[in-house]
Amino acid sequence: MPTIKTEALTHVYSRGSPFEQTALENVTMEIARGEFVGLIGRTGSGKSTFVQHLNGLLPPTGGRVLLDGADINADKKRRREARFRVGLVFQYPEYQLFEETVYRDIAFGPRNMKLSGREIGERVREAARFVGVPETLFDKSPLELSGGQKRRVAIAGVIAMRPEALILDEPTAGLDPEGCASILRNIAAYRRATGATVLLVSHSMEDVARIAERLVVFDGGHIVMDGSPAQVFSQAEALRAIGLDVPVVTEIAARLHALGVVVPACCYTVPQLRNAVLALRGGAADA
């Protein structure tokens, strides 16, 4: 049973003006409950436009978006409900912070859901825990925090709504390597704890290779590949043709393979390659 499904989704920007631009064309896709999907594609491939349809922010020019089989654009109430069920963290979400304190900012979403004060407090603390924001920061102004902390607070603001599906648009953009790794760990931990569907939009192959279970590749408003990371990263040439690349680890494995070292050609994480190399050495020692 898929939670989110798009049927022939099409979106045209500035229709009827000289700047008309088709951002999505006939995108049909299913995302099952609890899936961890990585959405990759270069800038302008339509991935950001696509995710803004999933919670009803953008009305489709053509096609439908179904949430548990019901059209989310059927009426206003449905669309609003979809906003809470499908949480969307925008690119550079720290620019949306506005409240006087960190606590109030994280509480903005739950407050809009008209929850009770106690319930809100519970959710804020839970969300802050997931993204690693200590409670000592709750009374600070969000504008005083460092860039990485602001980003965490902003992500917590969406997680606090306890969405069934969490979509993150480039959550690691502009962060240092440690910040990236830690945010990705937080997201993975959140999913393990809640069983939520997670959709990670990125143009960093390293990021998605590290945690996604399924990869969907966008190019020119279409889905051009859809499969497991191993399947997608085995098509290195096709990926390069659309301006993407494979993770460095996959590249190393491929070169080793070409040199006659018998490792599987499509390792895409460091542990995989390490194990393959160790197994090889072990094998050689045995012989």
């Binding site: 922010l57 609003r80 906003r83 949480g87 620019y95 903005f108």
Partner: peptide, 16 residues
């Protein structure tokens, strides 16, 4: 553009 983006982000958090 910025205002549009922020509006979308706040709408995503249920702002009305």
């Amino acid at each position: 553009e910025e205002a549009d983006k922020i509006t979308s982000a706040q709408k995503a958090r249920g702002a009305n």
